[in-house]
């Protein structure tokens, strides 16, 4: 029994270390590339700083000082878009989720579960189906290449997800607390703001962070609807690959690091919430 357990532990840790390597190596590669000089990339592959190349800060200087302003706009755009999308869809989606969790609905033959499922099914929609109508609509409304246009279309995709997630979340909060508050004379609005939202703070945070990460990283819709003024970070990264004759890998590595950093920090700090949010509904 003990031997079997030990063997299991060895196998388990072998797998874990293997996967750690798989995840870590590209990360390591990204970081060292940002510190390489062009010749340490273009001539041949170099692996370890101070052993086969001398690290330097010239790519950082190039990105931040020489081209500073050019590079800052996509980041500002992405920050604005990610935060506004997250805020808007958490509010709208959260309200919808709360309603579906606490009140009985009947739209035609659709009751709560069906309505919730109706929201869930939107997740299936391939964005490809929506590219063309949005393109025509935005042309008419002058929303192409504007941040508000991007926020709007991102909300379209994230609201159904938030509704579904938040409904599940509110259902895990015992309804008795709210009921006793109602009996104590609190009104519906008061119950929502004073009881339900504070109790569901983890869910709200989860929804907010997931939507934020999603819209920070989104590519296809940004590619289609944004041209120049309102490009976001992922689009900016791809535009960089062929901007000059020959890719400037070192500069791109710096930009990539800063494109990854905010979401990774937010994501890892709130790992528990994210895990919960992503596995909601699938695992009870």
């Amino acid at each position: 029994m003990a031997r079997q357990r030990r063997l299991k532990q060895i196998v388990a840790y072998t797998i874990l270390f293997f996967w750690t390597l798989v995840v870590a190596i590209p990360t390591y590669w990204l970081v060292i590339t940002a510190f390489k000089l062009p010749q340490d990339i273009n001539a041949r592959a170099t692996f370890i700083p101070w052993v086969d190349f001398t690290p330097g800060l010239h790519a950082f200087q190039d990105v931040f000082i020489r081209q500073g302003l050019v590079n800052s706009r996509p980041f500002l755009n992405s920050i604005v878009v990610a935060l506004s999308t997250a805020a808007l869809s958490t509010v709208i989606g959260g309200a919808g989720g709360y309603a579906l969790a606490r009140f009985p609905f009947q739209i035609g033959r659709f009751s709560n579960d069906r309505i919730a499922f109706g929201f869930l099914i939107q997740r299936m929609f391939p964005p490809a189906v929506l590219l063309i109508p949005f393109l025509l609509l935005y042309r008419r409304l002058g929303l192409l290449d504007t941040l508000s246009g991007l926020v709007l279309v991102y909300c379209a995709f994230s609201i159904p997800f938030v509704v579904w997630m938040m409904r599940d979340f509110f259902r895990t909060i015992p309804v008795e607390i709210e009921e006793s508050a109602l009996i104590d004379g609190c009104d519906r609005v008061g119950v929502l703001f004073r009881i339900a939202i504070p109790l569901s703070a983890p869910g709200v945070v989860t929804a907010f962070v997931l939507v934020m990460i999603g819209s920070w990283n989104e590519f296809l819709l940004a590619l289609t609807f944004m041209f120049n003024k309102a490009v976001t970070v992922p689009l900016f990264l791809t535009l960089q690959t062929s901007v000059q004759y020959g890719t400037q890998y070192w500069n791109m590595a710096v930009i990539a690091i800063f494109s990854v950093l905010p979401v990774v920090i937010a994501g890892l700090a709130l790992e528990r919430y994210i895990t919960r949010g992503l596995t909601f509904g699938a695992v009870k």
Binding site: L135, L136, R139, L144, D145, F227, N228
Partner: peptide, 12 residues
């Protein structure tokens, strides 16, 4: 980007 701007008549 130019073609998209032309197709949708958007300022580039």
């Amino acid at each position: 980007k130019l073609m998209q701007a032309v197709a949708t008549d958007t300022y580039l």
